[in-house]
Design a binder for these strands. Structure first.
Length: 479
DNA sequence: TACTACTTGGC
DNA sequence: CCAAGTAGT
């Protein structure tokens, strides 16, 4: 009889290319998956219905994957500090394995679970990094400190050899019927629906849940889009991005598998342009990793601005302006279109994430944390590190010492939605407006009234000048 | 210490 | 052509 190992899934909802699961399988054939629905996470006020719906779909798919290879996925609900050790004890498991997570909440939780396991005499546990290609401690400056600037991080990170994808779990042994009964008594439940958990998402998900769908998405992107990514990624009306963000957030696809696919794409493409595009996408993967490392080393990022000059910034925080931004009623077509896409689909093109973030912080002069939270309440791919990193970048409050990034909504629309296709798709009221006026936002007051489209809530020129003044003042104070 | 380089821009 | 300082070496 082989030892029972529990593998605790958190943001690695797959059985392929999973470092911790691979290690668990090597230790014993009797590997059983477990996932815990944690009220401390699900009852936060920044949880998106689309995200929970996607996650539940992924868990359902994961359940089937386990069944296919001869084992089970067990579902728990409650505080993992209690539920995981209790289940392990009841089943007389030899060990619980899992993969590390950079988030501050996860770090604290995991330490408590380790303590509780030790107390119950669960002898051995194993943890590894799985979400990222290099651990936070592996990448550092010549003076042994973490990078706080992307470019040198990228130089270092990209020069290091990356691990190959790991084997998919197979020929595992699950619980006996008797053990399944014990598991039930120890709190194992049926997988609830998102609705059971109080999250309603009526629309179709923009991304199909599950490991197989994610792998399909990766293959599709590699075959069709990656060689033109550098150009095409800029246009929100074009489907030129990978759309793998949600799958990467929940670890529905392994990052080593993704990296391997980029290497194969490099081998198969000749042109400079294609090579450059693949490199650009690899850099996006490095940004994701940079932000996870940053969150690990500087957990205070989750609490607000990294730079001193933004710590006591006199944000105007006008609630009416914020509401208009959320609802896509700012009177700036490109901003409203982007917010429409977010509200209706749970996803927003990255070009537009930058536009609306710049608008909220530099034009409305609203605390970026408000926007960051709203994104988390809506995004299917909402992830603390990536979302926080993106917002701090847009707010100029983050790590890179750069000029103030103030986007001009009209120039952005002219460059990246020149025909107004994206705006027309997401602001149906404006469909009939001539492209020139649509894109520049120069729609007459009368016309706006006729179409019941809002007047601009602020003047970009005035507000960006005001922001600059406020910033200069803050800089003097904090110097 | 001196020097280099700096995601996605605006005007 | 000005971004805006400064991390990283």
């Amino acid at each position: 009889m082989s030892d029972l190992i529990l593998f605790w899934h958190r943001r690695d909802l797959r059985i392929s290319d999973n470092t911790g699961l691979d290690a668990a399988r090597k230790r014993s054939a009797k590997v059983v998956g477990v996932f815990c629905l944690d009220p401390d996470i699900l009852e936060r006020d920044d949880v998106a219905p689309a995200r929970v719906t996607y996650m539940i779909g992924c868990l359902d798919a994961l359940k089937h994957r386990y069944t296919q290879v001869g084992s089970q996925l067990l579902i728990l609900r409650g505080n993992p500090v209690q539920t995981i050790p209790a289940l392990a004890k009841a089943l007389n498991a030899k060990a619980v394995f899992w993969n590390w997570d950079v988030e501050p909440y996860a770090q604290t939780r995991d330490r408590l679970v380790i303590d509780a396991l030790k107390e119950k005499g669960i002898e051995f546990l194993h943890q590894s990094w799985d979400q990222i290609l290099h651990s936070p401690k592996e990448i550092h400056t010549s003076s042994q400190s973490p990078y706080t600037v992307y470019s040198p991080f990228w130089k270092n990170w990209s020069s290091k050899a990356k691990a190959k994808p790991l084997a998919t779990l197979e020929n595992a042994t699950g619980l006996t019927e008797n053990e399944q009964e014990i598991a039930k008594q120890a709190g194992v439940i049926q997988l609830p629906s998102a609705k059971d958990l109080g999250f309603i998402w009526h629309r179709e998900l923009i991304i199909s849940p599950g490991e197989t769908a994610a792998q399909g998405k990766l293959e599709e992107f590699i075959a069709q889009n990656i060689t033109e990514y550098k150009e095409q990624r800029n246009f929100p009306s074009v489907d030129g991005t990978s759309r793998l963000s949600a799958a990467l957030k929940f670890g529905v696809i392994g990052i080593r598998t993704v990296w391997q696919a980029t290497l194969e794409a490099q081998e198969h493409s000749r042109s400079e342009e294609a090579q450059g595009s693949i490199r650009t996408w690899q850099q996006e993967l490095a940004w994701r990793e940079f932000y996870q490392h940053a969150m690990y080393h500087f957990p205070q990022l989750a609490q607000g601005a990294y730079r001193d000059s933004f710590k006591n910034f006199p944000w105007q925080n006008n609630p009416k302006h914020f509401q208009a931004w959320c609802e896509g009623k700012t009177g700036y077509p490109i901003v409203d279109a982007a917010m429409g896409q977010l509200n209706e689909t749970g996803w927003m093109h990255n070009r537009c994430r930058m536009i609306v973030a710049s608008f909220l912080t530099k034009d409305l002069i609203i605390n970026p944390q408000w926007g960051e939270k709203y994104f988390m309440q809506k995004l299917i791919d909402g992830d603390l590190s990536a979302n926080n990193g993106g917002w701090q970048w847009s707010a100029s409050s983050g790590m890179d010492p750069k000029p103030l990034r103030i986007f001009n909504p009209a120039s952005q629309a002219q460059k990246f939605d020149a025909e107004g296709e994206y705006i027309r798709q997401w602001v149906s009221k404006l469909r009939s407006v001539d492209t020139e006026y649509l894109v520049t936002g120069k729609i007459s007051s009368l016309e706006r009234h006729r179409l019941s489209y809002p007047q601009p809530i602020v003047d970009h020129k005035v507000q960006q000048a005001l922001f600059k003044t406020l910033y200069q003042q803050q800089k003097e104070i904090t110097m």
